[in-house]
């Protein structure tokens, strides 16, 4: 992405601005090096904290409490992961400085998976149908209804959190997966907007051809739109999954019971559960690594897709 000025230095035969030529390339190169240095520094600043979680998770609490700040794990060990996963014996747990009451990691992990999967399947299906109606169908009042949907983007989540909590308790769905997933299952304004953008960009040739053959809208949607939109629908599913996985405030109020408690809520309780004792940092960091792992794995597998989708989240 070099500009024309550097290109012209390679071919001295066509000097466009000879007066500026001798000085500019060097300054340009230097500023490029400086900019790369800053960028690398920023990337390091982004990644180092992640390294520090890993380093702590592989250390022992006793080594940490002596103030060991070595770059490599202090007294390297797997015991924290084994503790979090419930594979360590009670003696090991006490020796490692953990408390008796451990995080029920497997249960919370299962709950997070159930919650995020339910939300993703429902949200992408329902919002894709809505996006089809908003982008590919022509009906009176379409834009008005779309903007009404979109206007909910402006409502702060806490405003509807209290009534939604009350609603769930009225119908007896508090502390159930159905109740936990319901507010995100049918739609979020973001997802309707996001998918509509893609459906708007779809070419109508295939659609027209199918209609000629007498296909109704359900068939056009299922047999044409869904296959053509496979890539954006996958991206949407990843985003929905990650957002559900990271959700905290709603599961905190609507799913506090351990049987449906998700990882984010479990992790936050892990911290506040031990007011007097010295905090079990290594256990907490091991749990944190495991809690973020699914998202990181998803990211390693589909990173480019997520990164490329970001332009669509806020911009056309």
């Amino acid at each position: 992405m070099t500009s024309t000025t550097t290109a012209s230095t390679d071919r001295p035969a066509v000097p466009r601005r000879p007066a500026r030529k001798p000085r500019r390339p060097l300054r340009f190169r230097l500023s490029r090096i400086a900019a790369w240095a800053v960028l690398v520094l920023l990337m390091a600043g982004t990644l180092l904290p992640f390294y520090w979680i890993l380093r702590t998770a592989f250390s022992t609490n006793s080594a940490l409490f002596t103030g060991d700040q070595s770059v490599l794990p202090a007294e390297p060990t797997w015991v924290n992961f084994r503790r979090v996963l419930g594979l360590a014996s009670p003696e090991e747990v006490r020796a490692a400085g953990g408390s008796g009451a451990e995080l029920q990691f497997w249960l919370y992990l299962r709950n997070s998976v159930v919650f995020a999967t339910l939300v993703t399947v429902g949200q992408v299906t329902c919002c894709a149908m809505a996006a089809y109606a908003f982008a590919r169908l022509h009906w009176r009042g379409r834009d008005a209804v779309f903007y009404l949907f979109l206007s909910t983007l402006m409502v702060p989540p806490i405003f509807v959190l209290i009534p939604n909590f009350v609603l769930l308790s009225e119908v007896g769905l508090l502390d159930t997966f159905a109740g936990l997933a319901a507010p995100y299952f049918f739609m979020t304004p973001f997802m309707v907007f996001f998918l509509r953008q893609f459906f708007l960009g779809m070419s109508s040739e295939l659609e027209d051809a199918a209609r000629m053959d007498g296909a109704g809208h359900p068939r056009i949607f299922l047999r044409i739109c869904v296959p053509v939109m496979a890539a954006p629908l996958t991206t949407a599913a990843i985003l929905a999954y990650v957002m559900a996985w990271n959700e905290f405030m709603w599961p905190l109020v609507a799913g506090s019971d351990p049987s449906v408690r998700v990882l984010t809520v479990g992790l936050s309780a892990f911290r506040s559960g031990q007011p007097q004792a010295a905090p079990d940092w290594t256990g907490l960091m091991a749990a944190t690594v495991l809690g973020a792992l699914p998202v990181v794995l998803l990211f390693l597998a589909m990173g480019r897709r997520i990164v490329d989708s970001i332009r669509f989240t806020g911009l056309k």
Partner: peptide
């Protein structure tokens, strides 16, 4: 990808990480 990574991590995890 590297720069956007922290955005994908749960805020709860980010909070605990920096608390430590």
């Amino acid at each position: 990808g590297v720069l956007v990574l922290p955005w994908l991590i749960p805020q709860v995890v980010v909070g605990l990480l920096w608390l430590w």
